[in-house]
Simulated scan of single mutants.
Amino acid sequence: MGVTTVDEVRTELAELEDPKVRAVNERHGDDHGVKLGPLRAIAKRLGKRHELARELWATGDSAARLLAVLICRPKEFDQAELDAMLRAARTPKVQDWLVANVVRKSPHAEALRRCWHADPDSVVASAGWALTTDRIGRSPGGLDLPGLLDEIEQRMRDAPERLQWAMNGCLARIGIEHAEHRARAIDIGRRLGVLADYPTPPGCTSPYAPTWITEVVRRREHG
């Protein structure tokens, strides 16, 4: 018989808690000790269970919230709910999954992108920038790309870490996807120097925007 209640799910998540996993996650600002593979396996077994997802989210537990993101139906949340959920999602993994797996698939994604972009809370603003970055790659029509580059140029160097990362991702995406803005994007990245010294493992692409843009474009052009 499958798991059906929030208490049963939380018991199962508690049994998967690993102190070593928690220690690693805490170094990145997260606060759970459940490996993502087993978490996804639970989600696959449960299927889409929107009311259960709501109950799991309401617990405030990060592992439960990650599972909620995987089993909810994004289109069933209204705009106010999603706004409140993002503002309650204070750890990076929960925020990232919520934006990528729920908000992005919601009919309210564009309204929230506009609302969050200039929010005084830098964590909320980073979600707005993440949605903008997604649009640049999928449907950039109507976006003011030169204006975004102006804003990045003025604000990214001194932005809080989460917002800085989101702006940097937007800068790179503009340079990668839009050849007419590539030179300026690379120049901005070089002058600001954000993430220029970020340690990058062998075989991975640096998050430093000039390197990131150049490498992805090279791969696309030469295979």
Results as ranks from 00 to 15, higher is better:
E15T: 11
E15V: 09
E17W: 15
S139E: 10
E15K: 15
W212V: 04
K20W: 07
L67W: 01
R90A: 05
L195T: 07
Q164S: 12
E12Y: 09
G147P: 03
D144V: 10
A68D: 00
R45A: 14
D61F: 07
P201T: 12
I152S: 02
I152P: 01
R49K: 14
A111S: 09
C170Q: 03
K93A: 12
L163D: 07
G189I: 06
L145W: 04
H28C: 10
C204Y: 12
K35Q: 00
L171K: 11
D158T: 09
R49W: 02
P210H: 08
A111V: 08
G175N: 13
P74V: 11
E180H: 06
A53E: 03
V21D: 00
H28T: 14
C204S: 14
A111L: 11
D61Y: 01
G223C: 12
H108W: 15
N101R: 15
R184H: 07
L66W: 04
S126E: 06
C204M: 14
L67N: 02
D144W: 04
G223N: 10
P202Y: 02
R219D: 01
E177V: 05
I188L: 03
A88W: 07
A43K: 00
R182C: 05
K44M: 03
L192E: 13
E15L: 07
L98F: 00
K48R: 15
A84F: 08
K48Q: 14
Q95V: 04
L70Q: 14
D61K: 10
A63D: 11
D30K: 15
L143H: 00
L131S: 03
A125M: 02
L145P: 01
C115Q: 14
A166Q: 11
A179L: 09
E215V: 13
A185D: 06
E153F: 00
Q95S: 10
A159V: 13
R10C: 15
G37V: 15
P207F: 08
A84V: 05
A63P: 05
G60S: 10
A88M: 09
R27A: 09
A53V: 08
T132E: 06
T214W: 03
Q79D: 08
W212L: 15
A185R: 06
A68I: 00
G203P: 02
A80P: 02
P202E: 10
E161W: 05
R73H: 04
R135K: 10
I176V: 15
C204G: 04
H178A: 06
R104K: 13
A125F: 00
S126M: 12
K93C: 07
A172V: 01
R138M: 12
L56P: 02
T214C: 05
V99A: 07
D150S: 11
